[in-house]
Amino acid sequence: MEKESNMTRRYILIMLCLLSGMMSLYAQKTMRDVWLSMPEQYAPYLTESMRVRMLEAVEEGLPEKTDNLLKGTCQLERITDDYLRAVMGKTTRVELKLFKTDAGETRLCAVKTLVAGVSESIVQIGLPNWTEMKTLTLTDNLQAFLPDTLSQEMQEKAALLAFPIATTVNLSEQDSVFVEQVSLPEMSKEDKQWLTNLLTTRRRTLSELLPSEK
């Protein structure tokens, strides 16, 4: 009888330890936690101590540029409980956003934009601890950014000017919104002005972009 009681207590203890571990894994994270736990692959030229210094500078109201391992500079421009914007070098900008799904679960959206030549964004969504990060497929059809009333001839002209299509993404500090726009290649000033006046942005909620679970 005593042996069974000991086994029961051991079982309960094990279950409590497992439950504690799971609660720790999925505990509510702030953007500060997300920034400090950022995997090396997202910023290989920034050590954790460098990220700490950048964070402290912003919290003190003095967002200064920080030297990175590539002898360039990075700057944490803005951070709130659920939003972050940083310049990671001359050609890279990063935005992070914590948001709630329709089921009330917290997810992380990470946007990395390369601004050399034709700017282009890479977008991933996953858990706040940087696991299960999945890359989203961005819009590759220019027609999605053109007015419905545009003639077929003008659509073809626009598609030719913007080819190959690349898009950039911006996140909102205030809302869980994803804004996608076309990044234009080199072209004449007149053509660029004409196309810029035609193009619209695509605005969607982050919950709409969650990869479907199969």
Rank of each mutant, 00 (worst) to 15 (best):
P147M: 01
V111I: 07
A158Q: 04
F163A: 15
L25Y: 08
A57W: 09
M88L: 15
F99V: 13
L25G: 04
L62P: 00
R203K: 14
E173R: 06
P128C: 07
T201C: 07
W194S: 09
E156W: 03
L171R: 02
E2D: 15
D67G: 10
S212P: 05
A158G: 08
T30H: 09
Q174S: 05
G72F: 02
T200A: 14
P128S: 03
Q28P: 00
Q41V: 14
L146Y: 07
L142G: 01
G104A: 02
Y26I: 11
L114M: 13
E64W: 10
F99E: 09
P39L: 05
C74I: 05
Q143H: 12
E95F: 04
R51M: 11
A43S: 14
M15R: 07
L210A: 08
E60S: 11
T168Q: 07
L206Q: 09
K3Y: 05
M1L: 12
L16D: 13
R10W: 11
T101Y: 14
S119Q: 09
M38A: 11
E2S: 08
I122Y: 01
N68A: 04
Q143T: 14
K90H: 05
M15C: 06
L98M: 09
N129R: 06
V94R: 02
D102A: 10
A43G: 09
T139A: 07
A166H: 15
Y26N: 11
K71E: 12
Y42A: 14
P39I: 11
E4K: 14
P39E: 10
V182R: 02
M88S: 11
T201Q: 13
R78F: 06
G117A: 06
T201R: 10
N129F: 11
R93L: 13
W130D: 02
E105G: 01
A43T: 07
A159C: 03
K90W: 02
L184P: 11
T201G: 06
R78D: 06
N6H: 11
G104L: 00
P211V: 01
V182H: 05
D67S: 12
M88D: 11
A86H: 02
Q124E: 15
L19R: 11
E40Y: 09
E56C: 03
E120A: 13
R203N: 13
L36W: 03
T135P: 01
L171E: 01
S121L: 05
M22W: 12
N129V: 03
L36Y: 03
T8Q: 15
R204F: 09
L55I: 07
T200H: 15
R78M: 13
K189H: 05
Q124D: 12
K3P: 00
I14E: 07
E153N: 04
S151H: 08
E60N: 07
R202F: 00
V169E: 08
Q181H: 05
Q41F: 09
L127N: 06
L136H: 06
F178Y: 15
E4D: 14
T91F: 05
T113F: 01
S212C: 08
S24E: 14
E180Q: 12
P211H: 10
